[in-house]
């Protein structure tokens, strides 16, 4: 479908209508390296993470909603595996009935998390604006791109390390003929590190660093993007929200989960 629409709608469609392109295009703005393309020339740029974010135009209302959805999806993807959520929807985490049977509950949960996320963010921004001025939604919302990037890195790190091996194996021998297109020797997909007491703390530390780093970056960006406030206390609502969100992210990574 993406291919057909791209042919029908032309070059601009992917950037506007294909959600993964939009999502990763936004997240990539946090990267310390980027390409600047002007005419036939491409320049490789580098700068502190978030440098590009500060140069971006304010997010449009639909982009604000989209970024909040990106955050909510990650939060709920973690949340739905927790024993806490399973108990809430009356599931036995040791005897799960499968995804199909909980599709309604999980869809309702996802929408609820989305609405809550959007509501809390907009609420905090509004409160900041009321208290001290500044805090235009479009610019401030840009700071949440850092959180989206950090959450992605933390949430999908283990998947990258596990499913990534299948991807390499498939690329090495895509037709199952025993060939080695990447020149790799035959190898077994290996998950031993998941039970290795030396590896798991390292993985958790990396996830911890990604989430904490993302939130710190978001706070710095928030300070720069919030505009002139008359009172420093205007930053309090958003800061409280950020701290709460950090705690939630770390809890999701460390609590008992199934699946």
């Amino acid at each position: 479908m993406i291919f057909v629409l791209a042919v029908l709608e032309g070059e601009g469609w992917l950037e506007k209508g294909e959600f993964l392109t939009v999502l990763f295009g936004l997240i990539a703005k946090v990267a310390p390296l980027w390409l600047e393309i002007t005419g036939p020339r491409a320049r490789l740029m580098r700068g502190w993470p978030g440098t590009q974010v500060l140069q971006m135009a304010p997010l449009t209302p639909s982009a604000v909603v989209f970024v909040s959805l990106a955050l909510a999806v990650l939060t709920f993807d973690g949340l739905m595996e927790t024993f806490w959520w399973q108990a809430l929807i009356g599931q036995n985490p040791l005897e799960p009935v499968g995804r199909s049977a909980v599709m309604v509950q999980n869809t309702v949960g996802l929408v609820a998390v989305w609405v809550t996320t959007l509501g809390l963010i907009l609420g905090a921004i509004l409160l900041g604006r009321r208290v001290g001025g500044g805090f235009a939604t479009g610019p401030v919302m840009l700071s949440f791109l850092a959180i989206a990037a950090g959450y992605h890195a933390a949430h999908y790190l283990v998947m990258l390390l596990t499913a990534g091996q299948y991807t390499i194996a498939a690329l090495n021998d895509p037709l199952f003929t025993g060939e080695s297109w990447l020149g790799l020797p035959p190898f077994y997909v290996s998950f031993g590190f998941l039970t290795d007491p030396r590896m798991m703390p390292l993985i958790y530390a990396a996830q911890f660093a990604a989430i904490l780093g993302a939130h710190l970056l978001a706070v710095v960006l928030g300070l720069k993007l919030a505009g002139q406030s008359r009172r420093a206390v205007a930053h309090l609502p958003l800061t409280v929200l950020m701290v709460g969100y950090t705690v939630l992210g770390l809890w999701l990574l460390s609590t008992a989960r199934s699946g």
Binding site: F3, V7, L14, E15, T21, G25, L35, I37, L175, F176
Partner: peptide
Amino acid sequence: MTKTTLLHPTRRGLLMAGGAGLLTAALPG
């Protein structure tokens, strides 16, 4: 001039990539 990168492909580029995909898909059979 049109920008041509991975994120900004031309129609011709997309059609050619699609054609290559179809050829590859026919191989295992």
